[in-house]
């Protein structure tokens, strides 16, 4: 539905974005690939040169490597499950007739505006701290021993913090989708004798499928890179209990100053990200009329 000249114009106008993103993607990646085959420690800049795949073997042989992969998956999946399930429930609740829907919506959306370091620091110090935190106070009140969240269950605690940040996002998208469902459809189902649970299962949930797709896609993109929250709360520990892949690479690069191994880790992370991306785009790209 267009002319040759408009197609040419379109290509021209598309090119800045494409070229910039290509540079943004390829240049650092190429450098990372190069570093990943080099002996390159920031502490010993004189030791240089090609060292085959030693960086890769070293990175993969790191005891924390397997843990980091599993932790990354648990973090992403954990947050996704919590936010989608709770998001649906809260959206259903807010969609009911009630007084003060506007203020409720504002309160629910608020955690989304909080920058990650702030969220992490608030939770770490004022809630999860085993001596002064509010959770410890609550435990004391109930006569229970205080629980050291970040020490005893670091990954679960981080999942809780991140889920708190992303729950508003899931809730609001799902709420918007629910509100676009015509009440006629539901009334028709009601006339057909479908009880509430079946109405939810057969009418609301399929209607929400597309928005759940959006939630999963967008959140995965952001969750794969979760970093600040871990840095501020547990620093990946204790041990490697809350070390994710990005954090492991960060440790190699900035704590051990081993840029070569970090680059190898970066390549591994890029490969994994691409696998996830291809999987995601395949699985749900169809669901988006993009």
């Amino acid at each position: 539905m267009s002319t040759q000249s408009s197609r040419a114009t379109a290509r021209l106008m598309l090119s800045p974005t494409v070229i910039l993103l290509l540079i943004w993607m390829i240049v650092p990646l190429a450098l990372t690939l190069w570093f990943s085959t080099q002996r390159y420690n920031l502490l010993y800049p004189d030791r240089q040169g090609f060292n085959d795949f030693a960086n890769y073997t070293r990175f993969i042989a790191t005891p924390a490597f397997t843990a980091a992969i599993i932790n990354t998956l648990v973090l992403v999946l954990g947050v996704l499950v919590i936010t989608v399930v709770l998001g649906i429930l809260i959206a259903l609740l807010i969609d009911q007739p009630l007084w003060g829907q506007g203020p409720v919506r504002i309160l629910v959306i608020s955690p989304f505006f909080i920058m990650p370091p702030v969220a992490a620091l608030i939770w770490k110090n004022m809630f999860m701290n085993p001596t002064n935190g509010l959770f410890a106070e609550a435990a004391k009140y109930l006569g229970l021993p205080p629980f050291d969240f970040l020490g005893a269950a670091p990954l679960a605690s981080i999942i809780l913090i991140v889920a708190w940040q992303w729950l508003p996002f899931a809730t609001l998208i799902l709420l918007t989708a629910l509100q676009s469902l015509s009440s006629e459809e539901l009334e028709a189902a009601e006339m057909d004798g479908a009880p509430p649970v079946k109405r939810f299962w057969y009418i609301m949930l399929p209607h929400l499928a597309r928005s759940i797709t959006v939630v999963v896609l967008i959140q995965t993109i952001f969750l794969m890179g979760i970093f600040g929250e871990i840095l501020v709360t547990t620093n990946g520990g204790p041990g490697s209990a809350s070390t994710t892949l990005p954090f492991l690479i960060y440790k190699e690069a900035l704590l051990d100053f081993d840029a070569g191994t970090a680059a190898a880790g970066g390549v591994v992370a890029v490969i994994i990200a691409n696998i996830v991306a291809i999987f995601l785009m395949r699985a749900i790209g169809k669901n988006l009329d993009a």
Binding site: T32, P246, G266, V267, A273
Partner: peptide, 8 residues
């Protein structure tokens, strides 16, 4: 992953 390209 941003951290993968941090050094470059």
């Amino acid at each position: 992953p941003a951290v993968g390209v941090l050094v470059p």
